[in-house]
Design a binder for these strands. Structure first.
Lengths: 233, 233
DNA sequence: CGAATACTTGATTTCAGTCAAATCCCGTGG
DNA sequence: CCACGGGATTTGACTGAAATCAAGTATTCG
């Protein structure tokens, strides 16, 4: 409501443990601060599109971004989310390829754009930054590989439970055990890799089994252990 | 037959365009040469196991290695292959995690082991090496993400055709259009993420449609365009 | 407040997995 | 050289999970 469209500062931003810039010296942060451009996106805005060349990357300051690939009949496959502190779009800069996903906001979002040249400069000049970035990429790669296994071998039911756990880990739950992210049934389906109807049916089942409670898009976690059991670890 | 178990040299090895070490100065290569240990594996040997800590990575000199994750009922999901010039096991070094795949040779293989400390030293000391490594990782990440989409949305038939094309691109075909890698039906199934019987049935169909010819594990490509059409790009 | 979008439930279909049985193939040892 | 045993491959029959199709209800948003 009262959010002011204020330019976020890299110096205060980079304090967070999860921030990729955390090892950079202050003078470098100041240079980024000076060079970056800040963008304000309304919900459902596209930041960049799969297949396009992007000449920089984005650091999400507030809001949530879904990164998805588009399949043959236009069905989306959500690969991951960007949330405050995440960087998105860096993969294609580093690999020298076109963007492999579309980035679309699912909430009003503020993101800072930093040029690819600057990214490469930082990698070249600061070995600790290069290590951090590599660590991030390798973790992401591990997650993607894990998901290949899941999607190839697990049932939709197991995957849905797993996705819910993943969302809990990523976005947390509030005091009332309600998941701190609101997704449409279709978006859930596009994460799990299944049909919307299947997600609806399975959520109903979970609810009937008292594993979760549903109120619109709010999902309240009643029994995390149950979810874990359903997901098969 | 007449292959001699000879220690491969980093200096001659690194000439190849695809080699990750190609930007390193000669003196650094000499140091690697000195530090590395060379390992000779027979077919079906395990180089490292998913879930184990490995304190270095391997550079494949000759032979072929499959990298796979193991699912609940022990079914393998092949993530990628290592072939001459590939490096394997580096992901877990850089991310500081446990190995996320098992590496098993499917041919007699020679691979050089280089310590994780050395890898990190090279990343730190040589920005160009860091960039190359990052590029490699990011490309791999792009491929994994692509495969998530495929496996989530394509039919087994489409995926099998796609995997065959991928194998052609990776391992090539000989003068007689025969794929230069021999996999069991089960291994093909473990790439596609399906049952062995399904692969067998579909290969028979492809053969009946004159897209391929089969002689044991040899696959002869009769009509690549057909394969591409089946795979839906 | 009306249109559009999202959600839900039911009926039906189908792709692909599982199970079962037969055959093939290859290396080993007699 | 040949028989044997075990793994790999093939084919057929059956099953079932999940997709698709269809129709109605609820919500949201301009």
């Amino acid at each position: 409501m009262k959010k002011i469209k204020e330019t976020p500062s890299c110096l205060t931003c980079s304090i967070a443990k999860t921030c990729i810039f955390k090892t950079l010296p202050t003078e470098e942060l100041e240079k980024i601060e000076y060079e970056k451009t800040v963008h304000f996106y309304k919900k459902n805005s596209i930041i960049y599109r799969e297949g396009n060349r992007i000449n920089g990357f984005y650091c999400v300051n507030s809001g949530v971004v879904k990164l998805y690939k588009t399949g043959l009949e236009g069905r989306e496959q959500i690969i991951r989310f960007g949330k405050p502190g995440s960087i998105i779009g860096y993969r294609s800069i580093l690999s020298g390829e076109l963007a492999c996903t579309t980035a679309k906001t699912i909430e009003d979002t503020v993101a800072c754009f930093i040029s690819g040249a600057k990214l490469i400069e930082m990698v070249t000049k600061h070995a600790s930054f290069a290590m951090e970035l590599m660590k991030l990429t390798c973790k992401e790669l591990g997650e993607s590989n894990k998901y290949i296994l899941d999607i190839a071998q697990k049932t939709v039911r197991e995957r849905l439970a797993e996705i819910l756990i993943l969302l809990i880990e990523n976005f947390g739950i509030d005091d009332d055990n309600v998941l701190r992210i609101l997704l449409t049934r279709e978006e859930l389906a596009n994460m799990v890799g299944t049909a919307t109807e299947s997600v609806i049916r399975l959520l109903s089942e979970f609810k009937a089994d008292n594993v979760i409670e549903l109120k619109g898009r709010k999902i309240k976690i009643m029994h995390l252990e149950q979810l874990q059991k359903i997901s098969n670890l």
